[in-house]
Amino acid sequence: MNSKTLSLILSQSTTKDLHVIDASIPKSDYISIDLSQSNPALDTFDNSSSKAWDTYITNYLNTHNKQVAFGGYLERRNLYNRSAYFASKSQAEQRNIHLGLDLWCPVDTPVLACFDGTIHSFKNNTNFGDYGPTLILQHKINEVTFYSLYGHLSVASLLNLKVGQKVHQGDTIAYLGDASVNGDYAPHLHFQIIKDIQDYVGDYPGVCSLNNLEFFKQNTINPEVVLGLE
């Protein structure tokens, strides 16, 4: 099954207005944002500073009178150049292509389960520039199993969780963390839909290189399609 097939199954099988953050925020208060390496506005501040990123995102939202900035699936970014965790001597092996959807909004914003499912795994991924606290859910729709990943959470979000614990669509499963715990980013949710979790536990690549882009394009789908944000 390819990613287009999974995307179609999810689109046809989910009839609710899906949310992965605070459902009281209407989709009309979302706005897309370009964080790609081709956006010259990103050259006007220190990209290595989470505080500078927070200021840029906040000003962007205030300018447009919106509450959530979203985007980033398959976006090539310079943001990851600040971290040795993503670095490589080869440009083709440099990990800088984003594999999920980012939703930029304030710290402590509630994070919601996008589908019914169970807790697959969770972990605090503490590398600089990594996810920080991360939760992965397992789902099954029309006999098709897939996974959703929620990254950059608060540390408290991982307390009292149990593998196999059931969750329901729309349940509050976590809250967004701040830069001190979330990998040193402005507060946001990294939301990713994965076909095959492989052998990963509490983690899955959220950024890839050009060399392995085709694999990850087939093993993830664009969350904007599922959330009705495209």
Rank of each mutant, 00 (worst) to 15 (best):
I141S: 02
Q198I: 09
H152Y: 08
S83V: 09
A174N: 03
K140F: 12
H120S: 08
N125Q: 07
L135R: 01
H120C: 08
F216S: 05
K162W: 12
L99I: 02
N222K: 11
D34R: 13
L210C: 11
S28F: 11
I194T: 01
R95F: 04
L213S: 03
F70E: 00
Y30L: 08
I57M: 06
I97R: 00
A186Q: 08
L103C: 01
L42P: 08
K217S: 05
Y175N: 12
F86P: 02
I9F: 04
N142E: 15
H19T: 07
D203K: 00
L210V: 13
H168E: 12
F122T: 04
N78P: 10
V107A: 10
E75Q: 14
D43P: 10
V201H: 14
T44N: 12
R82Y: 09
G72W: 01
K166C: 12
F122H: 02
K217G: 02
D184V: 10
A156K: 12
G164Q: 10
N222A: 06
S180F: 07
V68R: 00
E230I: 13
S13V: 09
Y185R: 02
D17E: 15
I21K: 00
A113I: 05
H152P: 04
Q192H: 03
S209H: 06
G183W: 03
N124F: 04
N59W: 10
K162A: 14
I141F: 07
A186H: 07
I57R: 06
G206Q: 01
G183N: 04
Q67S: 14
Q91F: 14
S7V: 06
T220G: 01
N96C: 09
M1P: 08
K89Q: 15
N65K: 13
N47Q: 15
V107P: 07
C208R: 01
H168T: 12
Y200L: 05
W53S: 04
I97S: 01
G228L: 10
R82H: 04
D184A: 14
T126A: 13
G164L: 06
I173L: 08
N124V: 07
V144G: 05
V163L: 11
Y30E: 04
H190Q: 08
Y200S: 04
T145K: 13
Q67D: 14
I136T: 03
L74C: 09
N39A: 08
T220I: 07
M1H: 06
A156H: 10
I194S: 02
S148D: 06
S50I: 08
Q138E: 15
F146D: 03
D203Y: 00
L112Q: 06
L135D: 00
W53M: 11
D34L: 10
